[in-house]
Design a protein around this nucleic acid. Structure first.
Lengths: 266, 266
DNA sequence: GCGAAATGTATCATTCAAGATACAAATTGG
DNA sequence: CCAATTTGTATCTTGAATGATACATTTCGC
């Protein structure tokens, strides 16, 4: 038999979903460290899959160092299960904080080039058809572990002010403001997608794993589009936090954003 | 070292991902209505799958009424591709607005019962071990189409103030404030997961489809936990929007939330 | 009208996750 | 020690998804 190994990827499968499901539950605290997971037969019922499949999922969790399985006893959640650093960022101060907080924050520039602008980005940035933009794809790592995949588009004229090297060391917003751009407002949209072949590889997850998808458009004081960002985050290493207060009175009560959140726990 | 290699069996796997990928691109505007998608052979390259698989994805898109395929011509994005209502909600005024905006908003109560509180919820709400909570699972539909799946936990004592019927017709926060609870603050966390068997069925998506996951804990003025919400949203029918302004001056510049966003489009 | 390019159709082989089943081995509690 | 419960191991079957290949059909531009 030929060692067929060129494309070994943990494809999403039922077992993979059971794996992700259990991992989610452990991470989110449903099964705190030290507690026992339900028996394999219980899991068979709960997930509606065969025992073989459940065992595959458990094997993956074991290999990931999150559980210990003992014959005759059961499956126990280990302490280190939660040890994986998970960044909790407030929706407002995304990028700057991360850099500061990261013990070992690192940026890897995957692509840097000038291309004609694609339609949706063009419209959002308010550029004329055929305009050129500077496109960059960056990967953010902490302690060598990738957690975000950023694709940015900046109008060519503005992108002139910084070089490829600048981008590898300095936050984009700092670069922009340094060169006189006066940022004013931004709109973000948060959603969810699946990892494609490429993004999966970059972020070191399985193809088809869930990712947080964040799109942002930044405008300057004149209303010109300055940056279009399409970010993908690993949900197990990143979470977006939003703090709210109840405001208003009488009939019109609503939730108001809290801008300076207390530092996060966990 | 055994590299776990999994495969898929539900719903088409690779083809389903190609389908979701293309649909995402269409919805997000990469291929505006009227434009042509890349040829099947191009897609084969881009996604690294066989033509059979690409065609399966295209067939699904066609059945969904998003594209028209013509022999000899190619594949065109139809106008109605974007017609599916997609709700854009600001992070602050989530629930109230949706109800108001929905032409045909509907709530389906899937479960309503009292259970002993589970660990992670217990801790977040600050309840003593063994406390009982009222658990409800609701499905939100607009025009008969499900778009969110809400699981809430409310301390039993507080939940006394409203009935099962109340919950089917009135927003939870209105019920709570009506009965004298003084809501004060909330913390939300946004992430991404995959649809499980149950949630997939309720939201009418394929098992393993990506979902936006939002967790919220609401506290009253005394700091007591009032509600724990675990919400799942279909990313194709829902998006979370956050508006920011650049504030501060000199060295300390940061993004600040805008609280009253202009009404949404699309 | 011809050829390039696109989608449509058909068939076959391969791979491997998933399920079913049976039994072994380890632990715990009474 | 025994019975119940739990995880570990092994084997076989099967079905779905994927990929490879070949050829047909339609459209469009030259």
């Amino acid at each position: 038999m030929t060692q067929t190994v060129h494309r070994i990827s943990v494809d999403g499968a039922k077992s993979h979903r059971v794996y992700l499901g259990l991992r989610d539950e452990i991470i989110s605290g449903a099964y705190p460290p030290g507690s026992k997971l339900p028996g394999e037969l219980r899991l068979v019922e709960r997930y509606g899959v065969s025992r073989v499949t459940v065992r595959r999922a458990l094997a993956a969790l074991e290999e990931a160092g999150m559980i210990r399985r003992t014959p005759g006893v059961g499956t126990v959640v280990l302490d280190q299960a939660l040890s994986t650093t998970r960044i909790t960022a407030d929706a407002s101060n995304l990028l700057p904080n991360i850099i500061r907080m990261g013990k070992d924050s690192q940026i890897r520039l995957l692509a840097f080039n000038y291309v004609p602008v694609a339609e949706p980005v063009r419209e959002l940035l308010g550029l004329p058809p055929g305009a050129r933009v500077q496109r960059s794809v960056r990967l953010r790592l902490i302690d060598g572990k990738p957690f975000s995949h950023l694709t940015t588009h900046v109008p060519a004229a503005i992108a002139q002010s910084y070089s490829e090297e600048d981008l590898e060391s300095t936050p984009l917003y700092a670069l922009l403001e340094r060169s006189g751009v006066r940022l004013d407002s931004a709109t973000q949209t948060v959603s969810a997608t699946l990892a494609t072949h490429e993004t999966a590889q970059a972020l070191e997850v399985a193809e088809g794993a869930p990712l947080i998808s964040l799109n942002r458009v930044v405008y300057d004081v004149n209303g010109n589009g300055i940056e279009h960002l399409a970010a993908l985050y690993r949900p197990d290493r990143y979470r977006l936090q939003i703090n709210l207060t109840r405001a208003g009175d009488g009939d019109s009560r609503y939730w108001e954003h809290v801008n300076a959140p207390p530092a996060d726990r966990s």
